[in-house]
Design a protein around this nucleic acid. Sequence first.
DNA 1: CGTAATACG
Length: 257
Amino acid sequence: MRIISLNANGIRSAERKGFFEWFEQQDADFLCLQETKARTHQLVDDPAFTRDGYHDCFHDARSKKGYSGVAIYSREQPDEIRTELGREDFDCEGRYIEARFGNLSVVSLYFPSGSSGDERQQYKFRIMEWFAPVLDEWLNSGRDYVVCGDWNIVRSELDIKNWKSNQKNSGCLPEERDWMNDLIDTRGWVDTFRALKPDTVEYTWWSNRGRARENNVGWRIDYQLATPSLRERLQSCSIYRDERFSDHAPFTVDYDA
DNA sequence: CGTAATACG
C-alpha cells in the first residue's frame, strides 16, 4: 500500500507543470493533496483532474476563492467520504477530507498556517486545542488511520535548517512543537518518516523567497501520521527531490498490504 | 516570490 502526499500549492498550477504525468508513474494506491486552491466545480468536470484508474474527491474553501482545499485520489472506491468535523470556522476553509475503505481511513489535512499575522496564529492555536481530542477519537476508534498533510509545524532541530533564528516564527514556536510532539510521543501517533529515519535531515517545504530551495533552507512540516496499528506495516518512505510541481516536496510512504 | 484573485502563505 503506497500513499503519496503533497501540498500542491495550486492543483491547476501543479497539473500544468506535469504533476499528474509524474503521479501516474508512481504506482500509488492513494494520493492526498493539500492547497488545491480551486473550487470543486473547477476540478470535477475537467478531465485534467480526473485520472484513469482512480476515484477522486475534493473539499474546497467555502470562505474564499482560490484558497486552501484538499483532495484524495484512490484506486479503490471509498465506502464513504467525510469533509466536515462539526466546527464551522474549520469546516468552511476546506482543510479536511477523509476517505474510508473498510477499516482504513485516509485523511488529507491542511493544518492552518499562522505566518500571515497574529489573527491567524490565534486561529491556529484554537484549532490545535480543538483538534487534539479529535485525533484522540480517531486513535481510539479501532480504525487504521493515515493522516496525510501539511501540518505547518516542525518537531525538532532535525526538521528545520535555521532552528535558532526561527524560535519566534510560526511553525517553529515552542508551544506548536510541544503540541505536535505530544501527539506523537504521548498520545501515540506514528510520525512515519521519523519512525523509519530517526536521524535523517530532510525537508518538505522551502520558502520561495530568496534562494531557500537551492540552499536547502527548508522545513519538514508535511507528515503522514499513522495509528500504532500501522507501525509494524511500515516499509519505507521517501521525500522526492522533485522541484517541478510545488514549493513543497511530494513524499511517499509504503505500508505492507 | 508564487498562486490565484488582491489575500495568503
